[in-house]
Design a protein around this nucleic acid. Structure first.
Lengths: 107, 107
DNA sequence: CAGACATATTCCTCTAGGGGAATATGTCTG
DNA sequence: CAGACATATTCCCCTAGAGGAATATGTCTG
C-alpha cells in the first residue's frame, strides 16, 4: 500500500531509520530512545517493513529490527536525475563567471 | 507548513517536477501534459514553491515555473548517511557473486 | 500452567490534505 | 472598458493515516 516516498515522508519513521542505522535494535529500545508509544513504533515499523526499508528477526520474545539501506535505491535514482541538472546548472554559472572574468581582463 | 519530504511524497507533485525538469513551463502546459485539472496543478505548485523546490516568474498573463534543483540538497544530505552503508552492502553482494563464480570455475 | 514480559493488532477519534466545482484575481486585446 | 484568457483561491466532500487506549499474540521463567 504505502510506497517508499510516503514511508520516508513521516518524521518519526525517519527517526526510526536513523536510530536503527546505529545497529540492530529491539522495539523496546526504539520506544525508549525515541520516547514514542510502543504501538506507534510497531505500526511505523510495519510500514517501513512493507516497503522493505527494515527487516526483523526474532530473538526470544523480542524482535530485532535493522535497516536495509539498499531499499533506498529508488529514492537515490530519483534524486540522481536532478543531481545531473544541478551540476549542469552550476557548470553554466561557472562558465558565466569565467566569461565575466575574461571580459574584465580585456579592459 | 509542508516540509520537503511530504512535498515529494505525492505522486502528482513528483510528476510535476519531472515535467518541469525538461525546462520552464507554464501552468497550462503542465495541465495538458499531465492531464490534471488546472486548480490541482496550481495547488501542487503552491506546495512545491512553499518548500522552494519550484520557482515562478511572470510572463504576461502566464506564470512560468521551473525547478530549483539546489533545494534537493537536504535530500542528498539525508541520503548521504545511508549511501555508504548501501554501497558497502552492494560491495559485499558483489564479492559474494564473485566468490560464487570462483566456486563454479573450480568444477 | 500461571504469570510477567515484549510486541503486534484493533478500535476509535481526529485532522491533514487531495480532488472537484465554482469563483476570484490578474492580464491581455480590441 | 468589455470581454477572453491564464492562473490562483475558496468551499465542500471524502479518505488516508497518525495517535491513544485497550487488547491480542507470542515467549520466557518459575
Amino acid at each position: 500500500m504505502a510506497d517508499l516516498f510516503t514511508a520516508i515522508a513521516e518524521r518519526h519513521r525517519r527517526d526510526i531509520l536513523d536510530a536503527l542505522f546505529e545497529g540492530e535494535k529491539a522495539v523496546g529500545a526504539l520506544v525508549t530512545d525515541l520516547s514514542l508509544a510502543q504501538p506507534q513504533v510497531s505500526k511505523h515499523l510495519r510500514v517501513l517493513s512493507e516497503v522493505g526499508l527494515v527487516r526483523s528477526r526474532a530473538d526470544g520474545r523480542r524482535r530485532l529490527y535493522s535497516v536495509d539501506p539498499t531499499r533506498l535505491a529508488p529514492f537515490q535514482d530519483w534524486l540522481a536525475k536532478y543531481e545531473q541538472a544541478m551540476s549542469d546548472r552550476l557548470d553554466r554559472i561557472d562558465d558565466y563567471l569565467k566569461e565575466l572574468q575574461r571580459q574584465g581582463e580585456k579592459q
